[in-house]
Design a protein around this nucleic acid. Structure first.
Lengths: 221, 221
DNA sequence: CGGGTAATTGACCCGGGTCAACAGCAGTGG
DNA sequence: CCACTGCTGTTGACCCGGGTCAATTACCCG
């Protein structure tokens, strides 16, 4: 049930029919869309604990690809197993949909990021978000975490060129806000970084699952 | 159960606790996020037939606002009613989630739009999308449809300024692709418009609901 | 007819793109 | 242990798409 995917390989490609739900166990992946002329937009990163789209449930074709950024360990949950879970475990089902709504909320925030923020603000925002997401699954050590995307990946995630990402990174370092070397991110001044990013953590809806599964359970029982 | 909201009023604001699910019956609305310094990003338009977020089900606070672009008629579906439907009508439930996944897919495409396309391409893309969405609910006449967002609204939707939207619109008109006056959009050359927009309708997942509700029904019965 | 919102235009500017070279570093094979 | 290869990061010079600011003009509605 668990599989390993080498880095830079696609888990599933745009246009394919999804056969199972992926749960990331180890490593980073990204959801991305490519235009016919090769432009690529990364629409979200996926880190351990993230589910990769419930599309298979309802939509018959992937409208985007999922690619491995690092080498990746995933659990594959088949259609039938999933159907079984959904029909017998309402609180797990609620948790699944909760993930789905949160990732839609993240999707919205990325649009805000690319649509409204300047280069420096965008990168700062991505660092804030990914750090908090990793923290919520226990993958940070103090103010440090893994950050394996290349500058080109970052560029494709925030709608800039890698050249400009490089320059903005230097600016963030010069300001003493972050350290980023050998895939290791350290946030040296979180309040300042959040200020630069105009970061409001609300959209991540962290720490709000339990309350709601409880509520859902009450409604079901 | 149906309400009327005057134009430019919020249906529900960021931070509020959602009390019911809205179904747009008449008019246009938009989902948007504002940054503390006033910048606004419209993250999606909502037209008749669209449901406004199942957030209330699971998330306890709105992470964005919904505003009326025109005067608006909506149906409000209360939490209890919705719970009733969800527990007794699996195929309606599937349809609800289908809408949710499709709107997430639209969300992704908007990110691609703002992140990768040029000004002209972006506007062309919005016109293609909204025309097809209106067509699917029978609100087009030939190649014409209502298009009530102002140039400022369009600007906030695609991450440009209204000045530049104005200039790009003139360019689209000069190319003979569209007519847009008094809130009326006419697409004069759809193939060319799609070409300019690098438009691929796949992400709208049109015409794929029935098959899947059938499948879901089979799985449930 | 008057007041307010939305569209349009012009002049000027700047954030970020483009292109191209080069440096650093990890992994690989000899 | 070192040379080779290929990817990732870095830098410089130059340019352009789209932003800014500010003034009009057109339109809508009472």
């Amino acid at each position: 049930m668990t599989h390993t995917i080498p880095r830079r390989r696609d888990l599933i490609a745009q246009g394919a029919t999804p056969r199972c739900l992926y749960l990331i166990l180890r490593g980073w992946a990204c959801h991305y869309r490519t235009l016919e002329d090769g432009r690529r937009q990364i629409v979200n990163f996926a880190v351990p604990g993230d589910l990769c789209d419930l599309n298979l449930f309802i939509l018959d074709r992937m409208d985007h690809s999922i690619g491995a950024i690092t080498s990746l360990t995933v659990a594959e949950i088949g259609r039938e197993v999933l159907h079984g879970v959904v029909t017998t475990h309402p609180n797990i089902t609620t948790a699944l949909w909760w993930q789905e709504l949160v990732s839609k909320s993240i999707q919205r925030e990325w649009l805000v990021n690319v649509g409204q923020r300047s280069a420096l603000e965008r990168i700062a925002h991505v660092f804030c978000e990914m750090f908090l997401r990793l923290e919520s699954v226990g993958l940070t050590h103090g103010f440090s975490c893994d950050f394996p995307p290349t500058q080109t990946d970052i560029a494709d995630a925030i709608g800039l060129t890698s050249v400009h990402v490089n320059r903005s990174l230097q600016e963030l370092r010069r300001l003493g806000l972050i350290t980023l070397e050998r895939q290791k991110l350290t946030i040296n001044d979180m309040p300042a970084l959040k200020r630069v990013a105009l970061f409001d953590p609300n959209y991540l809806h962290h720490g709000r699952l339990k309350r709601h599964t409880d509520a859902a359970r009450r409604n079901v029982e």
